[in-house]
């Protein structure tokens, strides 16, 4: 019963929007629109679920005094502080302290993380683009052309001659490859959704053990 009811619910909720898409009757559409509204509410529950999961895993880490447990203390303290002032600030969380913490802690921390990436990406790209074989050489040349064709200093050096080649590389070979990836991922997602709706895929229900 604990598995059957969720499976029936999933089937009905999953099939209804497909049914509504093909039957544009007012009554059918109204119910579908209500489902969309419920979706906003249900999706919002993912947030507290994530918070509970994060807190539990970090508390366990602190209890066991695992390596780096002190960072978990910082994480939970930051989470509690931001949540406290966020809730104090009303619906959108604009308490002065909340805004101060965002501007002076969250913002610089995120900016630092992203800035550091530039160094790692440059180093990784340098190693990845070594001309070891034909494929790597093609990749290296394409990368140089695209980079020089898309930045102002590249325009200055080449007099804008690489820009059309760069644009062609992006709109033709790149777009074709991206399209393949997107279509492949979409087909995979669609088949997974069919499996979930039909009850073939049941891992989201858990192992069944308490």
């Amino acid at each position: 019963m604990r598995r059957t009811i969720p499976l029936i619910l999933t089937f009905c909720v999953g099939m209804y929007p497909i049914f509504a898409f093909f039957v544009p009757h007012r009554v059918v559409t109204n119910i579908n629109q209500n489902l969309d509204t419920y979706l906003v509410i249900v999706a919002a529950f993912a947030l507290p679920l994530g918070v509970v999961n994060l807190v539990m895993s970090n508390i366990n880490k602190i209890k066991k005094k695992d390596k780096g447990w002190f960072y978990s203390v910082v994480l939970i303290a930051g989470l509690c502080l931001m949540a406290f002032y966020g809730i104090m600030g009303g619906d959108q969380g604009f308490h002065a302290h909340f805004q101060w913490m965002f501007e002076n802690a969250v913002s610089p921390l995120q900016a630092t993380m992203f800035s550091l990436l530039a160094f790692y990406v440059a180093s990784a790209a340098y190693r990845a683009f070594r001309a070891r074989n034909v494929e790597a050489t093609v990749l290296l040349i394409a990368a140089i052309v695209v980079m020089l064709g898309r930045i102002p200093i590249g325009d200055m050096i080449t007099g804008g001659r690489l820009t059309p080649i760069s644009e062609w590389l992006m709109t033709k070979p790149n777009a074709a490859a991206q399209r393949g990836i997107i279509i492949g991922a979409a087909l995979g997602a669609a088949s997974m959704q069919i499996r979930v709706i039909l009850g073939i895929e049941q891992t989201y229900l858990g192992s069944g053990k308490d």
């Binding site: 969309d36 906003v40 249900v42 999706a43 993912a46």
Partner: peptide
């Protein structure tokens, strides 16, 4: 608004 694609879809109504 939280929920990603959910509010995007609901704004269509």
């Amino acid at each position: 608004k939280d929920g990603g694609q959910a509010p995007m879809k609901a704004m269509g109504v």
